[in-house]
């Protein structure tokens, strides 16, 4: 047990919006070991970003526990959390929005070091230059303001800022979805190199399955705040067992291998239901092509269908 970096146990989060309750995340559990990557996949509004923020305690947890390095951080106050922050960082989807427009890039990267009192002034400067260089930016970039850099450069700054404090866990919240395709692969490669070098654990949030497949050791598929399927990456792509996962994979455009049979591209019918009033039983049943009577009445419990392969579906086995 002590080897786990992060344990999330039956975590739920609800938001109250104008008197109504939004079920953002429902009883989600997962474990993450050092140096591993967990991919979180799902449509917009499936609660994947919320889950990432719960894991970092950027949001308060309503139910369940979050253990970081074996320590329960669920009940810690914001003040008690602050020293822990240097071990858990986040990379944001929109680097421009996450950087302070009135702060130079170098100052933004140094900020974490200043907050945690790491190094003397010259040490910090040295460290900023080194981390900038590591993410592929010249040291001159530290004198630039965010609006003077391009999107790809800014995302490198976002990565540099998260890494400068030497974290063990990094939540990447769709770090490439705002970037050009040509830049995406560079940033993903960079993230992977850094993981190997520094032994980082990632929670990688994305709606792009191909990206997640490439990076993740384990993948959790979220639908309306519930984990519908969770498995090692290879297993999940070889044997997707939940109808939702299956349709998600069919919706990915792939270059066919020569001689393979023609595959039709399908998409999921309808929209994701309102999280204010999730459907009865299995929350996917209104859109599920295989839905039966039991799906409308009873909520499926996650059960094992393979080694480490969890599925929440009545029909999968």
């Amino acid at each position: 047990m002590a080897t786990e970096l992060l344990q999330v146990e039956d975590v739920s989060k609800r938001f109250r919006v104008r008197g109504r309750t939004l079920h953002a995340v429902e009883k989600v559990s997962f474990k993450l070991s050092p140096g591993k990557t967990l991919g979180l996949v799902g449509e917009s509004g499936s609660g994947k970003s919320t889950l990432g923020r719960l894991a970092l305690r950027l949001l308060g947890v309503d139910e369940g526990r979050v253990l970081f390095q074996g320590r329960d951080i669920t009940q810690l106050s914001n003040k008690q959390l602050r020293p822990l922050r240097k071990d858990m960082q986040m990379i944001f989807q929109d680097p421009q929005a996450s950087l302070n427009a009135r702060m130079t890039v170098g100052r933004a990267i140094e900020e974490g070091l200043i907050i945690h009192g790491i190094g003397s002034k010259s040490d910090r400067k040295e460290r900023v230059y080194r981390v900038l260089e590591r993410v592929g930016l010249p040291f001159e970039a530290s004198y630039a303001y965010p609006h003077e850099l391009s999107g790809g450069q800014l995302q490198r700054v976002g990565i540099a800022r998260a890494l400068a404090v030497g974290p063990k866990l990094v939540v990447c919240d769709e770090p490439v979805s705002a970037l050009d395709v040509s830049i995406q692969i560079q940033v993903i490669n960079l993230l992977q190199e850094l993981q190997q070098e520094l032994g980082l654990a990632y929670i990688f949030i994305a709606h792009n399955l191909a990206v997640v497949e490439y990076l993740s050791d384990e993948i959790a598929v979220l639908y309306l705040g519930n984990v519908v399927e969770q498995a090692p990456a290879e297993e999940l792509f070889k044997k997707p067992s939940h109808p939702y996962t299956q349709t998600l994979m069919k919706s990915v455009l792939k270059i066919p291998e020569p001689g393979s049979e023609e595959q039709s591209l399908s998409h999921i019918q309808g929209e994701i239901p309102s999280p204010f009033s999730p459907p009865s039983g299995c929350s996917f049943h209104p859109r599920c092509p295989f839905a039966e009577d039991i799906c409308k009445r009873k909520k499926p419990e996650p059960h094992m269908v393979g080694t480490g392969h969890l599925v929440a579906c009545h029909l999968a086995n």
């Binding site: 020293p83 922050r85 986040m90 989807q93 302070n100 800022r161 404090v165």
Partner: peptide, 20 residues
């Protein structure tokens, strides 16, 4: 995101107000 990023770095609310 900017405030969230600063919080994530461990900045106190006073620091967020002053510098961000």
């Amino acid at each position: 995101d900017m405030v969230e990023a600063a919080t994530c770095l461990g900045a106190s609310p006073l620091r967020v107000a002053r510098l961000y």
